[in-house]
Amino acid sequence: MLPALLSALVLTGAPQTPPPASAPAAARQDPVQLEEVVVEARRLEEATRQFVEQIGSPPPGTRPGRWNGPICMSVTGMRADVAQFMIDRVAIAALDAGVDVEGPGCRPNVIILATSDGPGLANEMVERVGLGFRPAVSSTNLGRDALNHFRTADVPVRWWHVTVPVEPQSGQVAIAFRGQEAPTLTVRDASRLRSNVRYDIGWAIIIVDFSMTEGEPLGAVADYVAMATLTQLDPFADMRGLDTILNLFERGSDVTSLTSWDKDYLTALYSSRADRATEAQQINDMVTRMNQVRREEPETPADD
């Protein structure tokens, strides 16, 4: 079923688009004993946890998914040189995170489409290949509200991930797609810390509306696409206040590439254990790993 759905998605065409001022001196007064004022910066762990929890959004009842096999990209609707630039940029981010990337001739599981009418193309795709977006009722996608957002939102980049629960040892799919019989799985050593399934991103669909990206560097747009490809994102999340490429299209943002927070997040996602029993356990693992990475990063020297 999977190859047929992806083949249909690939064939869905897209149109071509080419220092503060000093305070005045106060009148001389006798010294006054002030109460102690403690200014405490937010702890690294709190900032990291907020980033992890705000960025990611797995399907309800699941855990953060990731690519546990290589990705293969198909780019449609761009000039050949622009498409290759996009592929190369996403590939670099993937390899840095620990994701393998297949070369030419592979079977695509990442579909990147360029257009000048994002909602129009999104609606057309959903109508043509509905099961490619919701191949099962649960566990694989973010549901109807998210799909409606994918179809109608006025955004420069929209994305859709399909997640597949699999048995970690064999890679066998652990659910039945619509029209299929439920699979039989052998339960091994499940515990309160370990699950019998992991969640693999099966395929991702990214639509870039170039009529809304004018003025942004192509490299920045490609990095945005890379982030949307490599992790499950919450389409409704307010990312303002976070240091992330996902604020690229926010007014006043000066981000132009994947930030250190983005890269550390991806590193933590792809180095954390994928067989945790609960979403909270896996998030805790990601936060711990991300903090370790950030503590090892060189600090900016303080002024004397």
Results as ranks from 00 to 15, higher is better:
180 Q>D: 15
143 G>F: 06
89 R>Q: 14
241 G>W: 04
199 Y>V: 06
62 T>S: 12
35 E>H: 14
137 V>S: 14
99 V>P: 00
83 A>G: 13
244 T>R: 00
182 A>I: 11
202 G>S: 15
109 N>G: 13
227 M>A: 12
224 Y>H: 12
73 M>E: 04
88 D>M: 09
59 P>I: 06
60 P>R: 02
204 A>T: 15
104 P>N: 14
56 G>H: 03
294 R>I: 14
269 L>A: 09
228 A>F: 04
11 L>N: 07
117 D>K: 04
147 L>K: 05
274 A>W: 06
136 A>H: 03
291 N>T: 09
82 V>W: 06
116 S>A: 15
150 F>N: 01
169 Q>F: 10
98 G>W: 01
33 Q>P: 00
36 E>K: 14
301 P>T: 13
91 A>K: 03
98 G>A: 08
116 S>I: 05
74 S>H: 09
110 V>E: 05
152 T>K: 05
100 D>L: 10
85 F>K: 07
287 V>D: 01
3 P>V: 11
100 D>F: 10
21 A>G: 07
36 E>C: 14
222 A>F: 07
187 V>S: 15
136 A>C: 13
46 E>L: 10
27 A>Y: 06
76 T>R: 03
168 P>C: 12
84 Q>F: 05
70 P>S: 15
190 A>S: 15
22 S>W: 05
246 L>M: 11
176 A>Q: 10
47 A>W: 00
17 T>F: 07
76 T>D: 13
72 C>N: 02
48 T>W: 00
264 D>I: 05
237 A>L: 06
68 N>M: 12
147 L>E: 09
259 T>E: 07
96 D>E: 15
127 E>I: 12
101 V>G: 07
13 G>I: 06
266 L>Y: 11
228 A>P: 01
113 L>K: 15
181 E>Y: 09
145 D>K: 14
113 L>H: 08
174 A>W: 03
235 P>Y: 05
44 L>C: 04
137 V>N: 10
56 G>Q: 03
135 P>S: 12
27 A>V: 05
90 V>L: 09
64 P>M: 04
202 G>R: 03
274 A>V: 09
